[in-house]
Amino acid sequence: MSMSESASTPATSGPASQEGFSPTQQERDELRRHGILLTSLEELYNWGRSNSVWPLNFGLACCAIEMIAASMARFDIARFGSEVFRPSPRQADLLIVSGTVTKKMAPQVIRLWNQMPEPKYCIAMGACAISGGPFKQGYNVLKGIDRYLPVDIYIPGCPPRPEALLHGLMQLQAQIRGQKLTGPDRPRHLRADTGCAYPVPEFGAHDLEPPANPEVWQAPSLPRSG
């Protein structure tokens, strides 16, 4: 504790430096500059999994080509340690929903997600995966994968440029690094109340049944009359 006080930054004067010391990232960086390492298992864990995000080798539509382009020499997703595109969901950490999810494909996407081991992350890449995009009015197009899956990062664009995917990946890494492993907002796989398997919709006579997973997604209500 005395060390943190010696690093005379304004941040350390807060109540955080009293009991139950949990320094913020800024405080940590400041301490690091003074040669003091503050660490915990939590930080090691988050550091490890944020720097080794292996995506599933899974492409849906147009965005998949840009996803491939992001792993190619010009953009080289390998710099972030993410070029290990695993073909089997068992070894993947990240599901990049790259393209239009049709109703015929949606159950398979959810099955793939269920087959991935925790901790796992989901990126909705492109307008179609976010909301159905230009094909939203189509009868066979799912209006956003977030109706069935918990999405961590949304990358807009039609299709997003490879740089956008890299940015999304970096945002995901930052999100992982910021996670607290205890407390009410701990990640999904450390909670007892949420299951890791999501219900797979059935093919109905006219539509998928159910059309959305109510635990993940609620239909927005019309915010104005009319």
Partner: peptide, 14 residues
């Protein structure tokens, strides 16, 4: 087929 059937023709008529 059909896992990427995005209703292109229907949308084209609309």
């Amino acid at each position: 087929f059909g896992y990427l059937h995005r209703n292109h023709e229907k949308l084209g008529e609309q």
